[in-house]
């Protein structure tokens, strides 16, 4: 199977869907790059180069550079989706959704419910998220819990190029508004990705490793760290199951609970803030639904309740590390009443 980068996988997903469905179009700040300038018209392909090359194939009507006005173009995406198109919108950083939050959580997310089930709003909001690039507090957050909180939205956090392509195709074909978050430190990650179109469904966790001692649940970039911790722990005979729920909403709690039937111990790794994050959400649901399966207290590995710092030393201390995951697993495995 061909190996491709995360970036290339996402680009392919959009390209294939734009070929398949004339209603699909992309827009955002510099998704082409160079509009109105004298030079190259596809200068950027998005701030991270993910949409590069789409302009040449699909032209400026379907690859639309926008002014820096997130409220207007995210709201316009909602309006276009409600009237029959399937916009794929790029927001450079999820942090910027603060300026257009109303369009997302009061408008797009709620049309269907408010209008008694009549509205269909098939839009995808792609944004980068995550720490690790020395980008500090306004360009590094992992805000997927904010959107997970809102009924009407679906939220995707892929962890591999394969999943990224299949999940984005699913997102574009999905009839509900989808927040699709891409970890900015993962764009060059490589993995096997088929050339053709395929979907990875929402609400189905991936199980990346089976082990009998502990279940580690992780999202996005934390999945790789969980896998590394699991490999290290295996050298000491501690076998971990690693679960990547892939989507925070819907959430595949069944698969997590299923693995707990064997492991009885749960460690949740979350790059989001610790309060009302995915770690606390999953811990809460498991405590409610599967308390009897637990042999040890649930361990959460998260950043501190603090914004993302700038200095490399501070950022390193901030992001959940392989060592912290390992330590949490050892704590769970070694726990006695």
């Amino acid at each position: 199977m061909p190996r491709k980068s995360f970036r290339q996988a996402l680009n392919e997903a959009m390209r294939l869907e734009m070929r398949r469905d004339p209603r699909v179009f992309v827009m955002g700040e510099d998704v082409a790059g160079g509009k109105g300038a004298s030079g190259e018209q596809d200068a950027w392909g998005g701030a991270f180069g993910v949409t590069k090359g789409l302009l040449a194939e699909f032209g400026p009507e379907r690859v639309r550079d926008t002014p820096i006005t997130e409220s207007a173009f995210v709201g316009a995406a909602a309006g276009a989706a409600m009237t029959g198109l399937r916009p794929v919108v790029e927001i450079m950083f999820v942090d910027f959704m603060g300026v257009c939050f109303d369009q997302i959580f009061n408008q797009a997310a709620k049309f269907r419910y408010m209008f008694g089930g009549k509205a269909v709003t098939p839009m995808v909001l792609r944004a980068t998220f995550g720490a690790g690039t020395r980008s500090a507090s306004q360009h590094s957050q992992a805000l997927y819990p904010l959107f997970t909180h809102i009924p009407g939205l679906k939220v995707v956090v892929p962890s591999s190029p394969y999943d990224a392509k299949g999940l984005l195709i699913q997102a574009i074909r999905d009839d509900d508004p989808v927040i699709f978050l891409e970890h900015k430190a993962m764009y060059d990650d490589m993995g096997e990705v088929p050339d053709g179109a395929y979907v990875v469904p929402f609400g189905e966790a991936g199980v990346l490793r089976d082990g009998g001692d502990v279940t580690i649940v992780a999202y996005g970039r934390m999945v790789g760290r969980a896998m590394e911790a699991a490999a290290r722990l295996a050298r000491d005979g501690i076998e971990a199951t690693v679960v990547d729920p892939r989507t925070t909403s819907p959430l595949d709690i069944d698969t997590i609970v299923e693995t707990l039937e064997e492991t009885g111990r749960l460690v949740i790794v979350d790059e989001a803030y610790p309060r009302c994050g995915m770690a606390s959400d999953i811990a809460g649901i498991v405590a409610e639904e599967a308390f009897g399966l637990l042999k040890a207290p649930i361990q959460k590995v998260t950043p501190p309740h603090a914004p993302v710092p700038y200095a490399p030393e501070l950022e390193a201390a901030y992001i959940p590390s392989v060592e912290k995951i390992e330590a949490a697993v050892r704590k769970a495995v070694g726990w006695t009443r």
Binding site: E61, A72, A78, A80, L85, D102, Q107, F111, A119
Partner: peptide
Amino acid sequence: GANGIVGGAPPLACGAALTAKL
């Protein structure tokens, strides 16, 4: 839709107009 948010309509109408245009 009527809209509970003051200033809610203009971006949405831009989207509907974009659909018409495309």
